[in-house]
Design a protein around this nucleic acid. Structure first.
Lengths: 207, 207
DNA sequence: CTGTTAATCTGGTATATACCAGAAAACTTT
DNA sequence: AAAGTTTTCTGGTATATACCAGATTAACAG
């Protein structure tokens, strides 16, 4: 029901209803879509970065339907941070890829990827709504192995919230991933913003 | 300044001030202490679970001062979940340890640990405000190796928020950790609730 | 039937106001 | 000087109301 209806039903003001709904949202029980209403949160998908599975694969394995939108793709000059991480010159061309990913038609993840085009010639002409890891394996015989991961729980930036059709300031999980080739070069850098309620990260450490 | 002062200063209502402050809080720029006021968030500590360092060690290595409160300690019967994970009988004695941990006098983490007392006889008589990993190493020659980790970004439960002197519904990071012995027995299960703005998790995966 | 326009519904943001609960400070009393 | 009490200040919760922005739906025109 809408906020106004809930207010009437429970004889409280709309402001109070909103606070209560925002509490439930913080717990991950419900979520909202911008000016469309409140919905029950579906179960979170389990994501194990160390398993090197593609989004499409682990989402469908868990019984959900994945989908990917390509928001932008272009070859662009590397900025300072990317250049430094990839050990290339600032301004050297890299492939930038901006995608939105869905689980059961719900947008849950915005990712921005910076791909080392030197190591993957011709990749900019491939279909990049598909699984990148599959493509790397089939066309370039590259398999993800070593990676550096970083997680922070933080609010979704404004443009990300917009792309996910949620409200600004919504809680999210920020993941940064650096993928290396077998010979320790930086293959790809990935910045992910997840809806906080859409994912649970599980990693096994085996020394 | 207080919410009322800010409202006067910028000629907006207190409700609006609160919303703005809550946005900044979600971004991790500021935080509040229950009925004490709003404060600037100090830098987050970097936590790498795979490095097997103790809280005291990695916090002080990064230039901060760690501190630990023991909120509760008792030998108690294992509940179903714990018993199952530890492969012991439900109701068998385990050591429960409830601690609050500080960085530079700011409470940032509540942890509840369930320790397999069979593998660590006499541990309940040790000083458990100190580093557990140090104790395990010195007294039992146990070193953390394999572990299963799980992360979710979620609101702090009511009692956790209270223990951290913050407001209910505050964003947090929930970490579950299962530590194994060298021979693959479950040594200890750890449930951690972090302030979302106090920690950044970094893991290197090297296959 | 199709495309366009207008009305309606949704949450998002804002005002002003009131009272409560607990932390901190000021003031007593001993 | 120390201990207890009161006051003041803080955020926390709640009311009622208003208008905005965008998504959805209904009505209309061709």
């Amino acid at each position: 029901p809408s906020e106004r209806e809930l207010g009437e039903q429970f004889k409280v003001s709309r402001v109070t209803v909103r606070q209560a709904l925002q509490h439930l949202e913080a717990e991950g029980v419900i979520y909202r879509q911008n000016r469309r209403g409140w919905f029950v949160t579906p179960p979170a998908v389990i994501y194990d970065p160390a398993k090197h599975l593609s989004f499409n694969l682990y989402v469908s394995k868990q019984g959900y339907t994945p989908h990917t939108d390509k928001l932008m793709q272009q070859v662009e000059p590397a900025n300072k941070e990317i250049a430094q991480l990839m050990s290339i010159e600032k301004g050297a061309p890299i492939l930038f890829l901006h995608r939105r990913r869905y689980i059961d038609r719900r947008p849950v993840l915005i990712e921005k990827m910076y791909i080392n085009i030197d190591l993957l010639p011709g990749i900019e002409n491939e279909d990049l709504t598909q699984s990148l890891s599959q493509l790397l394996l089939n066309k370039y015989q590259h398999q993800y192995r070593d990676m550096d991961l970083s997680f922070t729980a933080t609010a979704l930036p404004e443009h990300v919230a917009k792309d996910l059709a949620t409200s600004t300031g919504q809680a999210g999980l920020h993941v940064k991933r650096i993928n290396f080739t077998d010979d320790k070069k930086v293959l790809e850098i990935d910045y992910e913003f997840w809806r906080h309620d859409a994912v649970k990260i599980e990693i096994s450490i085996r020394d």
